[in-house]
Amino acid sequence: MFFLHDETTGRLIKGLDAAALRQQVTAHNLANLNTPNFNRSDVSFEDELMRARQQADTPLARTHEKHFPITPGPEINPTIKTDTTTTRRIDGNNVDIEREMLNLVSNQLRYNTYVQRLNGRFDNWRYVINEGRR
């Protein structure tokens, strides 16, 4: 496994994708705050990933008991889900402004977290590379 393509980095990048997409979807929901019969959408990624992580408990076979146990990570992609089951207003629009604003805030924090952790990964590698040179 090439060091830039390890599981953690891949997940973080997917998390960034999901957050960027969620920003877009939330902006679209907010833009259609006053559109009759509009149904809000949501991006699900983190919850799916968590669920998949809990289910994936079959580790790879090891040839030595001191090898690290590796559980193959599930391939989870961000998906857009449209909420058609709720109706909040008389015009058939189900956008809840409070919910969307909270989504904006939490999504921004999430994005910042992923960027920070990704930079943390890069710092680790930089450290390894620089120390190896000494």
Binding site: Q23, T26, A27, L30, N34, L104, N107, Q108, F122
Partner: peptide
């Protein structure tokens, strides 16, 4: 209020893009 909500969304998008510039 809708206008204000959308202005906030623009600001959030801007700060996300600014944060993206900090990657690496």
């Amino acid at each position: 209020r809708s206008y204000e909500a959308n202005v906030t969304a623009v600001q959030t998008a801007k700060s996300i893009y600014t944060k993206a510039l900090e990657i690496g």
